[in-house]
């Protein structure tokens, strides 16, 4: 009994790390630009495919592959910001329009990936072989890297936001664009940085996930939907709340799988989310706006 519970908690940690990396990217873009990026999952998928191409098809090794996956995703993120988001700044319908343009970007990336890489399942080798035992639960060393890496990445984003001038300028832009511009912050550059950073996170997540799951054009959809649940629980406004919610959701999901089985789990998660929204429209950890 204890063994099952520990195994469940450990697998919840793995899921939570994955969701934290996805959702924090969404949160960075939301707090800076007020845009919800529907293409976030597709950027993750691009990261995985590029990592596979560079490391397997070209043969440059996994680390180079992961790095290029991250980089290419970041570049596409900047491109999406430039072409699909920037034209609508200041538009009073910006929120709705950018939901639709990023949705279109998602379709283009997914179908584009299907045309470039085909429908055959692909998988990356693991960064490190072997398994690690935590108490009585066993996970692969690769998953352990994910579990360790996620908090480190979250911490560095947090430090970047709080301690560096660039990070501070992103927050300033998020709070008040005009005032930020008045004190000499280059607002378009801040937007591009936020989008690039978020997309890089998505790409890195995808490249790491490519060793655990199969790489397919639609692999980003499920993590995107889970990240949506996370941001609804945590509220989109703060990185800390989003990260906390990611781990809570990861653990709840693992426990639900244990108690109810794979089929009912997503249903119960969505139901919980809707109930949360009825009573706490800004999320469980979200403050009042």
């Amino acid at each position: 009994m204890i063994d099952t519970l520990i195994a469940t908690i450990v697998s919840g940690l793995v899921l939570g790390s994955l969701y934290a990396m996805m959702a924090s990217g969404l949160s960075v873009v939301w707090t800076t630009l007020g845009v919800f990026n529907f293409a976030h999952g597709a950027l993750m998928m691009i990261g995985a495919f590029v990592a596979w191409t560079v490391s397997e098809a070209v043969g440059l090794g996994l680390l180079v592959g992961v790095a290029s996956g991250t980089l290419v995703a970041a570049l596409i993120g900047v491109l999406i910001e430039r072409l699909l988001v920037r034209p609508y700044y200041g538009n009073r319908n910006m929120l709705l329009i950018t939901v639709m343009t990023t949705l279109a970007a998602m379709i283009i990336l997914e179908k584009g990936a299907q045309m470039i890489w085909g429908a055959r399942l692909k998988q990356l080798p693991r960064l490190v072989d072997g398994e690690i035992s935590i108490f009585s639960a066993t996970i692969s060393a690769h998953e352990a890297i994910l579990v360790v890496l996620a908090p480190l990445i979250l911490l560095s984003i947090w430090r970047f936001n709080v301690r560096t001038n660039t990070g501070r300028s992103l927050r300033a832009v998020g709070q008040n664009q005009r005032s930020a511009a008045l004190i000499g912050i280059d607002v378009p550059v801040a937007f591009a940085i936020a989008f690039g950073l978020s997309a890089a996170l998505a790409g890195l997540t995808g490249a790491l996930l490519g060793s655990i799951r199969f790489i397919t054009p639609s692999m980003g959809a499920e993590p995107l939907v889970k990240a949506m649940i996370v941001v609804i629980f945590g509220g989109l406004g703060s990185l800390g709340a989003t990260a906390g919610a990611a781990y809570v959701i990861g653990l709840i999901e693992a426990l639900l799988i244990l108690w109810l089985g794979l089929y009912w789990t997503p249903f119960v998660l969505f139901l919980m989310m809707i109930v949360v929204l009825i009573f706490r429209p800004n999320g469980i950890f979200g403050g009042r706006q």
Binding site: W30, L95, V99, I229, I232, I274
Partner: peptide, 11 residues
């Protein structure tokens, strides 16, 4: 706003 998008989509 965005929460309407998210909740209808999640539904």
């Amino acid at each position: 706003g965005i929460y309407v998008v998210l909740v209808t989509f999640a539904f």
